[in-house]
């Protein structure tokens, strides 16, 4: 067998000595989502930002525009709050899940 990483897997409180697989090694560690952060739901290029830091925003208000596959996608706020920090600027290429803004 090829060189493999030895790991312990726990099922029903029993510990099994075993070896890892390439797909298992890629499993990301789960983190509790922090709801102050607003992440990109699609990848693309930021073409416009509709708010500035310190703005009070409400649910449904335009946040920014992401261009993806030649479409300008209007992204709206999903909840109300005050824009604490804007983490991107027009021209930035963002990936899915990348944080765009912090609300407080």
């Amino acid at each position: 067998m090829e060189e493999q990483k030895k790991i312990i897997i726990k099922v029903d409180e029993s510990e099994y000595t075993t070896y890892s697989t390439p797909a298992y090694d890629r499993i990301p560690k789960w983190e509790h989502p922090d709801d102050r952060y607003i992440a990109a739901i699609i990848p693309g290029t930021i073409v416009g930002i509709s708010v500035k830091e310190g703005d009070a925003v409400s649910d449904g208000e335009p946040m920014l525009v992401i261009e993806a596959m030649k479409m300008n996608n209007q992204i709206k706020f999903g909840r109300s709050g005050i824009v604490d920090k804007i983490l991107v600027k027009p021209g930035d290429i963002v990936s899915k899940g990348q944080n765009l803004m912090i609300l407080k």
């Binding site: 067998m1 493999q4 790991i7 897997i9 099922v11 099994y16 075993t18 070896y19 890892s20 697989t21 797909a23 298992y24």
Partner: peptide
């Protein structure tokens, strides 16, 4: 059992 204790998972 050599890999992941032989568990069933998604893959």
């Amino acid at each position: 059992p050599f890999y992941l204790a032989g568990v069933l998972d998604v893959n």
